[in-house]
Amino acid sequence: MINVAGRKIAVDMPHFIFATGVAGWVAWFCWDAWHASSSIENLILIVPVSAVAIILYFFVAASCFQRIAESAELPASPRHPLAPGVGVKIAGSMALLIALVVAGPLVGFDVACFFYMLAMLAFLGERRIPVLLLVPPLFCVVVIYCFNTLLSTPLPLFFGERG
């Protein structure tokens, strides 16, 4: 909550930051396109759509600020709260997905996938040892073999020929 000229204003800060991030990217993209070439062939769609997006951003940003009466309580969050522990699980799942994408080309998708499957299974609550021992290697062998046999683009691998 912020105070402006003695008025209490509730701010949905996470949403405001996200919307500003989107608007910032739109403005940067428009500038980058203009900078690359200011010809109509280059900007025929980008400039009008960017202008509309920026106007819409102001409406969205304004909705993040809500004036509240002096005596009133702070309004409840506009979003339904996550169940306890779920936020950590979602953040962990995102981090592991990013780790898989980063590690894949570095160590090979076979090894990265194996560790990703193992880590995700354990992280999401799988405690049966046979499952943890069997599923990741089996998955990696079958999937990587199929993809590498069928597709013309070889995956970067640790074992076998590297793409």
Partner: peptide, 19 residues
């Protein structure tokens, strides 16, 4: 179970998107 399905689908999606 989703704890099996989620990592399987995500890994397949990552490898598939590379392809």
């Amino acid at each position: 179970r989703l704890r099996m399905l989620v990592p399987t689908v995500l890994s397949l999606a990552v490898i598939g998107s590379f392809a």
